[in-house]
Design a protein around this nucleic acid. Structure first.
Lengths: 149, 149
DNA sequence: AAATACTTAACTATTTTTGTCAAGTATTTT
DNA sequence: AAAATACTTGACAAAAATAGTTAAGTATTT
């Protein structure tokens, strides 16, 4: 249930590897593949989307690879996942493109929407920099502070 | 991404209908099907699992149907979803039955685990009674209080 | 010119989801 | 006892999503 696809998982792990080279050491796809146990071809597919989204840029030629376009502390996990997996809509009726025909009568609509908010706001508080420093679950106090509630 | 299956969605909606009959009015499958637009056969499959899990009981014969085994305020959405979709493990490596071979090296392991906790603890604070009363997203203060942080 | 490295599109196997179908069993009412 | 109502169970199957592979490039630096 509520499973994250491998695309999202691999994408975050790849971004972690690229973040390690920030700000000026391009990380090539082969080393990401080796360190994270993901096939080069599959990574290409994933990194392509992240590049088009502007989260990373590529450097061609020998010694080339991928670089973050912004500092690790400014890139949240939510951003990465949104690019690879779309909006945080837990049900198809919450997807802006599909819509819901029974919103009015639906007793669970707000529930799933709230859960989506919870997930999204949590993931917005976690950045690549947190992963670099060795992510530890944050206590509620810190979470609240970061979420500016 | 992170999509809830229809089984989980329909299950919660069916439980809502059954909760409306609490404590002594059995709700038959046909009326759940009609009110929630879900096929009878599919509902049978879902209600069967919930019954085996002890969340509901069935009454046979004319006038029969399904009844909650506990008051609506004691049955959380988390309980229902766990029965229908398994544990809140966002990645297969977090599933107790599968396990993870690279926990030590995995930089995202704790992240997904924390997210799972967030989701689960949120859903534990929402009960069928909340749905009956018309669920409104709770503010953080109330959430914290309910979660006994 | 050669080596390194990224780019893109098309394709496919596998798995999961979302149901349906069929053949029951159990209980109550008349 | 018979009929009606209602739940019970397991097997099966179509459709969609996921997870990846293959192939044929293009771009840049040394």
């Amino acid at each position: 249930m509520l499973r994250l696809s491998t695309k999202g998982q691999y994408g975050v792990r790849a971004m972690y590897e690229i973040a390690r080279g920030y700000p000026d050491e391009p990380v090539n796809i082969k080393s990401i593949s080796r360190r994270q146990d993901v096939s080069i071809h599959y990574l290409e597919q994933i990194l392509n989307r992240l590049r088009r989204a502007g989260l990373i840029k590529s450097v061609k030629g020998p010694g080339g690879g991928y670089l973050l376009t912004r500092p690790p502390e400014e890139i949240s996990i939510a951003e990465i996942l949104e690019e690879l997996e779309g909006p945080f809509a837990l049900t198809s009726c919450l997807n802006p493109e599909e819509g819901c025909v029974r919103v009015d009568r639906c007793v669970t609509h707000l529930l799933w929407k709230s859960l989506g908010w919870q997930i999204e706001s949590f993931l917005r508080t976690v950045t690549l920099d947190d992963l670099l420093k060795g992510f530890k679950p944050l206590d509620y106090q810190t979470l609240l502070k970061r979420a500016r509630v």
